[in-house]
Structures are given as C-alpha cells and as structure tokens.
Computed example of a mutant assay.
Amino acid sequence: MKALDILVAGGGIGGLTAARALHRAGHHVTVAERSPHHSTTGAGIVLASNALHILAALDVDLSEHGHPLPSFDLVDADGAVLQRIRPQRPAGHGEPSRSLARSSLHAVLHDHLPGEVRFLAGRAVASVRDTGRAVEVGFTGDGAVHSYDAVVGADGLRSTVREQLTGPLPLRYSGTTCWRGITDNAGFTNALESWGPGTRIGAVPLPGRKLYYYLVTTAPRRAPEPGWPDGFRRAFAHHRGEPARLLDILTEAPPLHHDLEELDTPVWGSGRILLLGDAAHAITPNQGQGAAMAIEDAYALALCLAPGTDGALERYRTLRHRRVRRMQLASRRIGKISHWQSRPARALRDTALRRLPPFAAQNQYRALVEPALALLRKP
C-alpha cells in the first residue's frame, strides 16, 4: 500500500477520528481546523455501542471519561414509562452506551492524535480542486496552493468542502427547534426522554454529577425564542412528573439553541474528495446517532483508501450509503411521530409503545450495532 498525503478538513469528532484511522493505516495526515482553539463548546453526547466499538478498535478508551447508561426510559407527558430500553450487552462486545460532555470527547480524541499528525488550528479551507492527479487546496488568508493526494471533508453541516463540489445545497428543516445545555444533576439517575404534544424533554446523567438536557418543540424556522423562564414553562407545560422537574432545577436559559436541520440526501464526494459526518449526511438527532455515523464513516474511509485513491469514492459510497440512509430516514420518522399533537394519535402511539415486546427493542438494538461489528471484521 502506498502512503497517501491526506488533508482532513475539520477537527471535530469525525475529523479527529478519521485522522487517527488514516494514520494507523499508514498515511501522512494533516488536519485543518478553522477554530484557533480546541473545542470547548457543545452540550452532552450519548455514544451507543456501535460508536464505542469503532473507537475501541482505534484504541480510544472512554471508560474513564463517560457515564455508563445501562438503560433509557421513554416516557409520556405524565412521566409514565412507555418503553424501558435495556440494550443487552453482546458477549465480548463491551458496554451498550456511554454519556459524556462533547468537550470531553473532543479532548480525548485530540489527545489520541499521534504526534506525526499535523494539526493546523485556525486554518479554514477556502477552495478545493481535484486535478485528477491530486487535490489543490487553498486556505483562507494564505495565497499559496497546497497539494494533497486526497481530501476528507469533515467540516460539518455547512461544509465549505461540500459546497465546492455541489454549490450551495438547501438544508431540510425538520420542523423542530432544540435548546441544549449541561447543568448540575439534582437526582436524575437514569437517561430519559418525555414525549408531549409537539414537545420533548430529555435528561441524561453525565460524570461529575452533571446532567445533559435538551428541550425540543415544534416551531417555524427561526421562530422567536420563548422568554426565560415563563415562556419555557408555558411551552413545556404539558410535561409532568420527573421530566418537568428539569425546568425547576435550571437556573438560567439553555445556552445552546439550534433549529434541527439536515441534508435531504447523503453526498459522499467527488473523485479524490470524500465527505464524512454532517458534511456528507447531516441527520436529525432523534436516534442520537449523528456522531456515531461520523465515527463509523471515519473507520470505513480508511478501509476504502487502503488500495489507493482510484475507486475509493465508489468503495466508500457502497460501504456507507445504505446504512446511513436507513438511519437518516428512521430519524425523520421518529422526529415526526414523537411530535404528534392530536390526542387520539398520541394515545395510539403510546399504547403501541407500551405493548411493544422486549425482543422488538433488542432487534432494533442489534440492527444498530451489528453493521458496526461487520465493518470491524472487514480486512
């Protein structure tokens, strides 16, 4: 195998994982990150078993950096359990899931970058051009042209690299907007999500007696934010029981607010320019699989570049498209169902969830995890 000179555009979770995977495969890797500082933003994250398997294969150990989540409760607006999801641990395949602050995950991945990987902080990609023999790259504030054997676009939902290939693509708005943050944990012992009429509340324990939370509501794009605290209390007034307690313990408005947007369909790249994570297939967070898909992408991309750049894009698309597209469409469906507002529709949904047999949830979990295990078995 010939060692390639590869630029990874973007130093987030997917980009750092790709840099590690590509270096382990024997390539020369440069990471260009537009931010001049290591990321300290973001709220919390839950990594399911599929992501943990991939990271473990790359010798990234999160056992000291996360909170184990043996189960997850889906509850109705009154706080009654609709479904208690207890992913069974596959023999020899580690924990089902783990929660941690996004900044902690980013720091762990950055600390695991090999010294040979060149990290360019404060360097944003301005242009990319595939000449057929190499990819010419221009950086903002730098008049020089830099040449690489391949470029990996890991620069997020509003990817500059993707826009160089496709032009501006309209983002698909989910019809929902989300507030997130981290606060002190005042007694939440289990991860939960509450479904109300057109709203959701989520709470996930983190290490250090912290709590990751999110509040989601149906709203027009760029709708005005409700006032704090009374506007939020009115917006989520249908939630009772333990989920409603979240609003009682918050001492300030959530720090992060985003309309939930995604790409309509995946875009994998062109020629020697390959995309991963949100740059390729931004997914609504309704299954908590956005970062996990980027981590899987990173591992797959290293496999697909092993024989060289010729045919790498098609190998990569073949390996990832069906898996990611299923995840993308399933997340859309969950987003719609979870925000049903009519009382009869919600009653029907809640009854169906209560009656779902345990083996059905286990089958869903296996469908989540087994493709990642199959990816790890590929030569």
Rank of each mutant, 00 (worst) to 15 (best):
G132K: 05
G132P: 05
R133D: 15
V135M: 03
G138V: 05
T140I: 15
T140P: 02
G141F: 02
V145T: 14
S147I: 09
Y148W: 13
D149F: 03
A150M: 06
V151S: 12
V152T: 07
V152H: 05
V152Y: 08
G153F: 12
A154V: 02
D155T: 02
G156P: 11
G156T: 08
R158V: 05
R158W: 12
R158E: 08
T160V: 15
V161T: 00
Q164L: 05
G167Q: 00
G167H: 00
P170M: 04
R172S: 13
S174I: 08
S174T: 06
S174H: 04
G175T: 02
T176L: 08
T177H: 10
T177A: 13
T177S: 15
C178N: 12
I182N: 07
I182Q: 01
I182R: 06
T183F: 00
D184S: 13
A186G: 11
T189H: 11
T189F: 00
A191G: 15
A191T: 11
E193F: 03
S194D: 09
T199Q: 11
I201A: 02
A203T: 10
A203E: 09
P205M: 03
R209N: 15
K210P: 07
K210A: 13
Y213P: 01
Y214M: 13
L215R: 06
V216R: 14
T217D: 12
A219G: 06
R221T: 10
A223H: 12
A223E: 10
E225N: 08
P226K: 10
P226M: 12
P226N: 08
P226Y: 01
